[in-house]
């Protein structure tokens, strides 16, 4: 399906979504964080869409908000979309886990928790993946300060 068809199709599932195609080759969908899990389940189970391959999962710090970006692809139809979700709570950001939809999210969510501090509900084993459990702060956040290891030029 082309991006336009995808947009129409996905809008018919959930009409509270925000679509952009600006400065990206993929169709970008921004979803409210409470609807995330529902949308993901729909995207995977719908036979016309069948986004069964989560090929990239990125945490991002927008400055004010923390976000997670899901790159999805369908094995059958070979179309790709991007789902974005944001949360403004920087102290205790919580999102729903999608490990039950795509199992590959397990390690990726652990990585995002490790570097951005985003917690995921219903994750089977949420802990720091790379860093030691007693590490302070979340290094990939833009406001992370580490006077010992980061040299600011």
């Amino acid at each position: 399906m082309t991006n336009e068809e995808l947009q129409n199709k996905i809008a018919s599932i959930n009409n509270s979504l925000e679509f952009t195609e600006e400065a990206s080759e993929f169709l970008n969908i921004t979803v409210n964080k409470d609807d995330l899990h529902k949308l993901c389940t729909d995207l995977k189970s719908d036979t016309d869409l069948s986004f069964d391959y989560l090929f990239c999962m990125t945490g991002i710090d927008y400055g004010k908000e923390l976000g997670v970006i899901y790159h999805l692809e369908s094995i059958k139809h070979r179309h790709q979309i991007v789902v974005k979700v944001k949360t403004e709570d920087r102290e205790n950001p919580v999102l729903d886990s999608v490990t039950d939809v795509w199992k590959t999210a397990e390690f990726n969510e652990m990585e995002i928790f490790d570097f951005f501090g985003v917690k995921f509900n219903n994750h089977p084993n949420l802990k720091r993946l790379f860093l030691t459990p007693d590490w302070n702060g979340f290094p990939l956040r833009k406001d992370y300060v580490d006077v010992d290891n980061i040299v600011i030029k």
Binding site: E22, S24, E25, F55, C56, I69, H71
Partner: peptide, 22 residues
């Protein structure tokens, strides 16, 4: 780079390597 998000995947010897640039 211009403002925007870019993604490219390639096939390495181990599988799919994706590069995401914001």
């Amino acid at each position: 780079l211009p403002k925007g998000e870019f993604y490219q995947k390639v096939e390495t010897a181990r599988g799919e390597l994706g590069v995401y640039i914001n």
